[in-house]
Amino acid sequence: MSDKILMKGNEAAAEAAIIAGCRYYFGYPITPQNEIPEYMSKRLPEVGGTFIQAESETAAINMVFGASSTGARSMTSSSSPGISLKQEGISYLAAAQLPCVVINVSRGGPGLGNIAGSQGDYFQSTRGGGHGDYRTIVLAPYNCQELADLTLEAFDLADEYRMVVLILADGFLGQMSEPVVLPEPSGKKFNKDWAVGIGRKNKVASLILSPEDGLTKHNYVLKEVYDKVETEVRKYEEYMLDDADYLLCAYGSSARICKQAITELRNKGIKVGYFRPITLWPFPYDELLNASKGKKKILTVEMSLGQMVEDVKLAVNGSIPVDFYGIPGGMIPTPEAIIERVESYE
């Protein structure tokens, strides 16, 4: 047990980033993610890295743009309203095929909202909050260990596909402390001959005015990458689905509530399990469809008014009924509410 440390989610993510070799962090204070910049401001100088508290979210993501264009591993983090501000930069990063990691410790919205955990940013994360035809890989951890593991992996994914990787956590996860075993770096090496500052007179740019179809061609280049990611990067967890009549579908903190509800429902003799997407983009459509075969119904549970449920419906394409239970605005569903809903199907 000695290798386990009780760590706040935010701090576990920050330390995992450092283990991944991230040496450049640029951010701006916003609750409930402040422990990430605070931790980085202390730790990065210890490992020869750079921390800058930027003048704005917009500046922070553009500092990441600059650092990433040199091939260095860099990141930023924020919470929902701040992530909105970063969308401009994320679109530019995506266009220029620059790798980086962005952590969203999301909170209630819209607007300034509140500071409790929320899942109202699913659309923003998976549908591209910025402009243009682009994708970001979206990873949704559900405990502190996974937050650390996925943050580490995010840097490899970002470098491998030259994409922005977004970690969609939430305020509960960021503030929660759990025992964490810090992950080991993968040791993978990536070719970065596209970077500036390596004597190749490289250009990192996103404006393509000519030829007329230049941007179209570039979009197809991006699509090829996205297609590859869709086949190669799909993560999900199945829990007690084998004999289940009902399938709960949830990610992040909601999935934890579902797990508790499943235990209690099974104690009552109702066979239920869950499917937990870990990559929200690419969404594991085929895997969910397979998992849903032979089930009577899907109940999607979210801390929102219903966002991922649209992907769930796309996955099963009408083959079985899809119900939704959610609560927006920084509240968390109770196991009792989920139990009651599932019992109503009997």
Partner: peptide, 16 residues
């Protein structure tokens, strides 16, 4: 070597 910044963000990009 050239890096094209978003509108107004050049000093932030240069900083990075």
């Amino acid at each position: 070597d050239g890096v094209e910044a978003a509108h107004g963000r050049a000093p932030a990009v240069a900083t990075g």
